[in-house]
Each structure stands twice: as structure tokens, then as C-alpha cells.
Design a protein around this nucleic acid. Structure first.
Lengths: 138, 138
DNA sequence: TTATTGTTTAGAACGATTCTAAGTTAAATC
DNA sequence: GATTTAACTTAGAATCGTTCTAAACAATAA
């Protein structure tokens, strides 16, 4: 595991006790730049010899989301995906192959104000379509 | 049911055979300006004396989405919500009471281009936070 | 009428997620 | 160091939204 001390600090800063399982998961999410599902995370960690229980994967990811370390990406109805919270970015999802692409965006350009909104905590943007690779295959 | 002929035309225009169940559902979605779940739709129609089977509600909504009459809104992991396709609008979701508010938006202002995107078919935007009503209650 | 095709239906099956209750670890107190 | 306490992890059961299946039904064509 890389940056053990740094990961520990990151957890402590959010008042999360740095157990081995939590450090493994946080490390995984930091090094993985896709948008993995629980199943993928569970399988990858198991393949690396870290057999956490699936319940722990669920519990920990939920905790991280609550504490603001990750966010859930609801691309479709099937499985939740998890995303490290970097700078604001939008997602493009290929309806054909399922690939996900990120692109930084500046929400402020929209000048979007919801009169009913008291406070805004999160902003998500999704484009859906067909990626160039799939389009060229047809 | 209102505008029987008009609803029939709307279905035929998308080459959907206008069965009674489909007309009922389309009519419901046109008159309902919330973002209902399958359960809500099913219960409301039953209360109006139209007891479609739940399978038909699922099948028909899926068909309407495929044919471009509705879109699915994946606010969270629990239940899918359905939305009539009007002009582009964003959603604000209150994390406290679950209320959903719409606001028209112009995506073009973002100047957002995904280099990997061949074609874009749908654009969704979600803000999450606490609505004014909930904020004032705290 | 007899096929043929499409639609609806109830209930079973599925699968992602949550719950439960027991086991384990780690810190706190004596 | 032993004992209590609280927090964390775990396997498996339970839940629940959704999909599947196979039969019934309706509409149309031959």
C-alpha cells in the first residue's frame, strides 16, 4: 500500500478510524481511475489477496460517501458506481459499450438557480450517447 | 381520459400500437407533473379504477423510454422515476425531504465537449442539497 | 374458422443492497 | 495484565425493485 501515513491522515481528518480495511479501500479508490462497482472493487481486492467481506465494502463505501470522500454515481438502475471526489467533472456514458469518460466542467457558466434550493451540496452532470469507437464499428 | 385522439396520435407517431393500457399510462404521465415511481403510477391508476398489472406498467414505461416519449431519472439507488420529455431542464433534489424541483437550462452555455463522444442523445443535470422549507425547519 | 402476431398478466426468479446477530479487534478502565 | 466497553468486520439471511416466464387474451390476417 502506498502513502500509508497520508491515507491514515486523510481518514483521521474526517474522523474515520483508520482500520486496515478502510485504508485498503481508500487506497484502491485513489489508485483506480475508473468508476468501479462494488463487485469490481470486491473482486480486485480479493485478487490482490485482500479478501474483505462484501458487507464491509458496502459499509465502508457508504461511510466514505457520508464523510465526503467519495460520491455515488447512479448511471443506471443496475449497480452503483463510486468516484473519488476530485474537481468538478461531468460524465459521458456510452449507451453501447458502457464506457465512462470524464471531462472537467464549470457549473457556474450555467447561471442555474433553483429558487427552492436552500443549499447545494453536490452537482452532477451526465451526457449519454454513443462513443466514437462504437460508432465506427457499426 | 382527456385528448383521446391526440394521445392515440402521439403513440402512432412513434409506431406504438395504442392499446387501452398504453393510453392510460401516457395520459397519466402527461397530467402528472411530479416524477413518479412505478409504485406511485401503479397505485394512482388502481385508485382511479384502472388496475393494470405491475408488469404492464414496467413494460410500457420501458417501451415509452425506448421510443423517446419519457426518460428515466435515476435520483438514487432505490426506485426509478419517470419524466415526460419536455424542454431541457435540470433537477434539484432535496436530500432531506426528497422533493424534486425542475428548472429549465441551456446546456450549450457549458461549452462542454467530450472528445470521445460520437453522438450525444441525452443530457442530465442534478443538483443536490437542502430545500428552503427543510432548511427553515432545522 | 384458423393461424399468426402482439399485448397483458400473475407469479416466480433474480440480483443489488441492507439487515442481523455473532465474532473479532482495539481502546479504556480497573 | 485482566476486564469491560465500544467499534468494526463478517457470513448469511432478508428485502425489495425489477425482470423473466409461460399462459391467457385480443386483434388482425389468411
Amino acid at each position: 500500500m502506498q502513502n500509508y501515513a497520508q491515507l491514515t491522515e486523510e481518514l483521521k481528518a474526517r474522523s474515520i478510524k483508520p482500520s486496515l480495511q478502510r485504508l485498503l479501500l481508500l487506497n484502491y479508490m485513489h489508485t483506480c481511475h475508473t468508476h468501479p462497482t462494488v463487485e469490481q472493487i470486491y473482486a480486485d481486492l480479493a485478487a490482490q489477496g485482500h479478501a474483505l467481506s462484501k458487507a464491509t465494502v458496502y459499509n465502508t463505501l457508504t461511510l466514505f460517501v457520508q464523510k465526503g470522500l467519495l460520491r455515488v454515481v447512479n448511471l443506471d438502475r443496475s449497480e452503483a458506481r463510486y468516484d473519488v471526489l476530485a474537481c468538478d467533472h461531468g460524465h459521458f456514458v456510452c449507451e453501447c459499450c458502457g464506457a465512462i469518460y470524464d471531462e472537467p466542467i464549470d457549473f457556474d457558466k450555467l447561471n442555474l438557480i433553483f429558487p427552492e434550493a436552500g443549499s447545494v451540496n453536490q452537482r452532477d452532470l451526465f451526457y449519454r450517447g454513443v462513443c466514437k469507437r462504437c460508432l465506427s464499428k457499426e
